[in-house]
Design a binder for these strands. Structure first.
Length: 733
DNA sequence: CGAACATCCCTTTTT
DNA sequence: GGGATGTTCG
């Protein structure tokens, strides 16, 4: 009956069978982490220790949750039903809907996307008369999110944790923002965790209910938890009546999300947090060849803040290619090099889908895309704009929200003038004023102003048609006259939204229409519109049909958890990787995180890893020179094969007499800031256009320059009068 | 109100 | 170099 246990190695089996008390499983890359987690889950159920709904299983991604659900089902022999299995956010949303009224929400609250969050925050900031120029809203949004990541409600922010933002107004804005969310019956992402945690810590009877419910807690990717997630877990796990039955699986060496609030300390501190905790290390790697593992291990050994763990080959083959490190002249050559190697792999019958190019930052993909296009090699970029983030999809969803949630002001604002209905800033402002005065949602305010004559003419007719359409669609749904898919189609057609894109002559309009029909298809898979909207806000999935045979292009962050036969790791240069920006902000801690990122990159490879760096790189408009990443030297050289046109030059540098009096030559002493990442110094341009010159401007016509300074010209135009213009907008005549 | 122009920025982004 | 976002004029 327990043949599923036979398929584990001794450490894995230990992790699965240690069922009493807290357990930390330190699972290195490729050591069977998911297998342990799913088998443990199934083992708890099959051994009769708990029934499915008594286990709380938390992941970070929907993909991981889906995978776990499937694999548990496979071991059980039937689909697993009634599980508390999902992402932190999905589980919290579920809990929050149960207790919504405690917080002044209804159980049908909306979960806002980032667009809406920002728009709402801007409104609040405006009310506080904050100069949007001086204090850009995204900055404060970030601060609020960090507060939420750390479990800080507005009243919990101590002066030490406050920010300079807005000249000290940040806390008050945060508080108002939270209040507005409640009025709108809405939550942002951070709220899901924040609200539930707050509830658990202030309402013992609610917490007690969950203590009685959950006998086991399983947590995936524990190294990526932030403070509020940690608090949530600890509240649920620590109980008076019994030891905490929590099992966390993670890898401190793969913690790469500190900038999102993740705290490696959570995993480093586990044994202190949960006394009597048992720690199991999984170190046998079944994924990669010996050289790849040795290279990764050598690299990560340079980090200090580690729990310590060494990857060992699980298979007994010492074979395997060395890593390739290619030194190239410039970034164009690097793209050509990678393209050429991929062509070779393809010629040798390697599947393209088993090849990945992993970059540090999104903008690096472009060069490779261009190269792959010219070589006619199919590729996919993973991670870019996701389906539900596209403008047309967000618009369509806003239409739906207006129907399902008439109080959703943010949704209404988004689409009230899309397509154009003549409702501009002025009209919207008067709607707002009326809504605020009467304390009613915008849609109701609009209805009242139509009746009262507060809006007139074309705007009135358009608004009336729109609001009537919403009401009718709502009615169709309530009375079941039309199925929800038919309602969606009606809504998008009669509002003129579909027509807007049909009339659009831009090249991407057809694609957008395709996306809209794709959306309708997705809606059809759900029972109700509300259910669909919940899915959308929580499951921003990127279901790139992974089946096609295409080269995978993505960031290192996006590659976590994936594996490929061949992995290209370009751009290993100081300033780019490790990223200068990170280093400036986070010092040595940040450097260690960059190194973990490098470790994640190398350990994605099953059979071969091809690293590269360029001596000259095109950044924005101009060329900058760069030096190889320090990480390259941290990889034990016996596992590396050097190649590339610039390899010889690099050897010369290495063997050259010491520079700066250092015994290690150039490599030991690095300038603190790398030229490539300094602000591109804008040379005080001695403009070729001098005072008195006669010039032509596209818009203003002919004129004479009266003063010229740093590229800015004062010009007296013959027709348009005196203007200040940039010199690159005029031509000399 | 909306198009055209000008300016500003440019890491990573599991939900 | 380029996309997103404001500003300005018709």
């Amino acid at each position: 009956m327990s043949d599923y246990l036979d398929r584990l190695n001794p450490e894995q089996r230990d992790a699965v069978q240690s069922l009493d008390g807290p357990l930390l499983v330190l699972a290195g890359a490729g050591t069977g982490k998911t297998r342990v987690l799913t088998t443990r889950f199934a083992h708890i159920l099959l051994s009769g220790r708990a029934s499915p709904h008594q286990v709380l299983a938390v992941t970070f991604t929907n993909k991981a949750a889906r995978e776990m659900r499937e694999r548990v089902g496979a071991i059980l022999g039937h689909p697993a039903e009634g599980l508390w299995l999902g992402t932190f956010h999905a589980l919290c949303a579920r809990m929050l809907r149960r207790h919504a009224s405690e917080l002044g929400l209804t159980s049908s609250f909306t979960i806002l996307d980032t667009d809406d969050q920002l728009r709402l925050l801007k409104q609040v900031m405006e009310a506080h008369r904050i100069d949007a120029k001086r204090w850009p809203a995204p900055g404060l949004m970030g601060a609020i999110q960090r507060w939420k990541d750390r479990g800080l409600t507005p009243d919990r922010i101590t002066p030490a944790e406050d920010t300079e933002f807005g000249g000290g107004a940040a806390r008050a804005i945060y508080a108002d923002y939270q209040a507005r969310l409640i009025t709108l019956n809405a939550c942002d992402f951070g709220d899901l965790l924040l609200h539930v945690t707050e509830l658990l810590r202030t309402r013992p009877e609610i917490l007690d209910g969950y203590h009685r419910l959950f006998r086991y807690i399983l947590v995936d990717e524990y190294q990526d938890t932030n403070v509020v997630q940690y608090l949530w877990l600890r509240l649920l796990a620590q109980r008076a009546d019994a030891p905490a039955n929590i099992c966390c699986v993670g890898d401190d060496d793969q913690s790469i999300y500190s900038w999102r609030g993740a705290e490696v300390e959570n995993i480093l501190r586990f044994e202190a947090d949960f006394p009597g905790a048992k720690v199991v290390r999984l170190e046998r790697n079944y994924r990669s060849t010996a050289p790849i593992l040795a290279a990764a291990a050598g690299l990560i050994a340079h980090n200090d803040a580690r729990l310590g763990k060494t990857l060992r080959p699980g298979r007994n083959d010492a074979s395997g290619e060395k890593l390739t490190v290619a030194a190239l002249w410039d970034s164009d050559e690097e793209a050509r090099f990678v393209g050429e190697r991929i062509e070779n792999l393809r010629r040798d019958d390697h599947r393209l889908s088993e090849i990945a190019i992993l970059v540090r930052a999104g903008f690096q993909t472009r060069a490779f895309e261009e190269r792959l296009i010219t070589l006619n090699i199919p590729y996919r970029v993973i991670g870019g704009l996701r389906f539900y983030e596209r403008a047309e999809i967000r618009d369509a969803l806003a239409y739906l929200r207006c129907v399902v949630q008439p109080a959703d002001d943010l949704a209404f604002e988004r689409i009230v003038n899309v397509p154009r209905r003549g409702v501009g800033d002025a009209a919207l402002a008067s709607l707002h004023a009326h809504a605020r005065a009467r304390s009613i949602p915008l849609i109701s305010a609009a209805a009242e102003m139509i009746d009262s004559g507060g809006v007139k003419g074309r705007v009135r007719d358009n608004l009336r048609a729109l609001i009537t359409l919403f009401a009718e669609c709502r009615d169709d749904l309530d009375r079941g006259v039309l199925g929800h898919v038919a309602v969606v189609e009606r809504l998008l057609d009669e509002s003129g939204y579909t027509a807007m894109w049909k009339a659009d002559k831009s090249p991407d309009a057809p694609g957008r229409l395709d996306n809209l029909s794709e959306l309708t298809r997705a809606i059809a898979e759900f029972e109700t519109l509300a259910g669909f909207l919940e899915h959308v806000s929580l499951v921003m999935d990127n279901d790139e049909s992974a089946g096609d045979d295409k080269v995978n292009l993505m960031t290192l962050h996006g590659a976590k958890g994936l594996e490929f036969d061949s992995v290209f790791l370009p751009g290993w240069e100081e300033g780019l990787f490790p990223s200068q920006r990170s280093l400036d902000e986070g010092g040595n801690k940040a450097l260690e995180e960059e190194r973990r990122l490098a470790y994640v990159g190398i350990t994605r490879a099953r059979r071969r890893a091809i690293l590269s760096h360029a001596a000259n790189r095109r950044i924005y408009a101009n060329w900058q020179s760069s030096i190889p990443s320090r990480f390259l030297e941290e990889i034990p050289s016996e596992h590396v094969e050097q190649t590339g046109s610039a390899a010889f030059a690099r050897e010369q540098v290495r063997n050259a007499p010491p520079v700066f009096g250092s015994p290690f030559g150039l490599t030991a002493r690095r300038p603190k800031t790398i030229e490539a990442w300094e602000q591109p110094a804008r040379p005080a341009r001695s403009s070729a256009i001098a005072v008195g010159a006669r010039v032509f401007h596209q818009k203003f016509g002919y004129g004479t320059v009266t003063s010229a300074e740093d590229g800015r010209l004062d010009v007296t135009f013959e027709k348009a009068g005196s203007k200040r213009v940039m010199d690159n907008y005029v031509e000399m005549v």
